[in-house]
């Protein structure tokens, strides 16, 4: 998944350099969606969900 995110970002930058604005924006939109999905997946725990119980006193 991380490779796909960096791949989408690389594609977006290449397309921006080639002045393919619309395609570059589509690639960056894909990159944001994938990054948001991976972020929520990384911080989610089956036991505690999105909570951070180690900060509860």
């Amino acid at each position: 998944m991380m490779a796909a995110i960096f791949g989408a970002m690389l594609l977006a930058l290449v397309l921006a350099e080639l002045r393919r604005t619309l395609l570059a924006n589509a690639a960056i939109a894909l990159c944001i969606v994938l990054a948001l999905w991976l972020f929520q997946w990384e911080i989610h725990s089956p036991e505690t969900g999105y909570a951070i119980p180690w900060l509860r006193w």
């Binding site: 995110i5 991976l38 972020f39 990384e42």
Partner: peptide, 10 residues
Amino acid sequence: CPLCLLERVA
């Protein structure tokens, strides 16, 4: 780490 890489993406 994975979150470090996501910070680079941002």
